[in-house]
Amino acid sequence: MPWAGGFSAIDRKPLKPEVDIMTTKGILEIRNLGKAFPANGRKGSLQALDGINLSIRPGEFVSIVGGSGCGKSTLLRLISGLDDEFQGEISIGGAPVRGTSLDRGIVFQDLRLLPWLTAEANIALALENSGLSKADKRQAVAEHLKLVGLEKFAQAYPHQLSGGMSQRVAIARGLVNRPGLLLLDEPFGALDALTRSRLQAELERIWREEGITMILVTHDVEEAVFLGDRVIVMEPGPGRIRRELRIPLPRPRRRSDPRFLEIKEDILREFTGPETAEAESLEPAGRPLAEARLDWAA
C-alpha cells in the first residue's frame, strides 16, 4: 500500500516554536456555547448552536455525528478560532480561545486547497510559519505525501486530482505541522471504502503515536465508533448535543466485534427511532429532509 510506510518513519522535530504549548496541553472546555447567524430574509436569526457543553481532555479522540445542518462544521470553526463571534466560552487549559493558532489544525469539509498551488505546495503552506528550515519543510512535506499515498502526485494541481486524492492532500496539510488539536470535518467522505478504512487506521495510529487531540466530524456512525473514545450525537434546530457515549472497546477495534455492532446499532437507532421525524422537522427550512436520511444510508 502506498502509505504503508506509515507514520513512524517520520522524524519528529520541534515544530512551531512560537506556539504556546501550554494552551493545548490543557483541557478543551466548551461552556454553554451558542452561535446565531443572521437569517436571510426572515426576521430574527438562525440559531446554529445552542447550549453546547463539552470538555475534551488532551489526547482524547472525540467523534461527532449528526445529520446535515446540526451545526457540526460551525462548532469546529468556533473551536479553530476562525470565528470569534459566539455566546458562551471556549477555552483550552483555562485560556480563552481567541483567533487561530498553528496548534489548532483544521481539515475543512470543503477541503479548500489553493487551486494555483501543487499538492506539495498546498501541504507546505501549513509549514510556512512553522520555523522549520527549508530542508526540514521539504522532508516533512514529502513524508506526508507518502503517508497519504500521493508521492507521485506531488506536482499535480488540485484540478488534476480526484475528489479522494484532494481529500488526502487536505488531510496531509492538516497533519503536517503536528497541531496539538486537530479538527477534522468529514475528512473521509469522498474516499472509496478501501482507502477510507486504510486512512482511518492510519489516522488512529498517528493519534496514538503523537498524542494529538482529535475531534472528528463524520456522517458515518461506524467510523465514529471505530475511532472515538467518545461519540457525541448532535441534533438540529438549534444544533445541540443529543447524546454522548463512551466507547469502552479496546483498540485496535474490530468492526465485526459483536459489542462494536451493538454500539453502532444503538447510535443508529437515534436516527431511525420515532423521534426522528420530530428531529428532522426541526431542520432549517430549505434543506431537503431526504438529504438527512440519505446521510445515514451508507
Binding site: T100, S101, I106, R112, N129
Partner: peptide, 10 residues
C-alpha cells in the same frame, strides 16, 4: 473560504 486558509495557517 481561501482567505480563511491563510488565517488558519497564520
Amino acid at each position: 473560504r481561501l482567505v480563511e486558509v491563510a488565517r488558519a495557517y497564520r
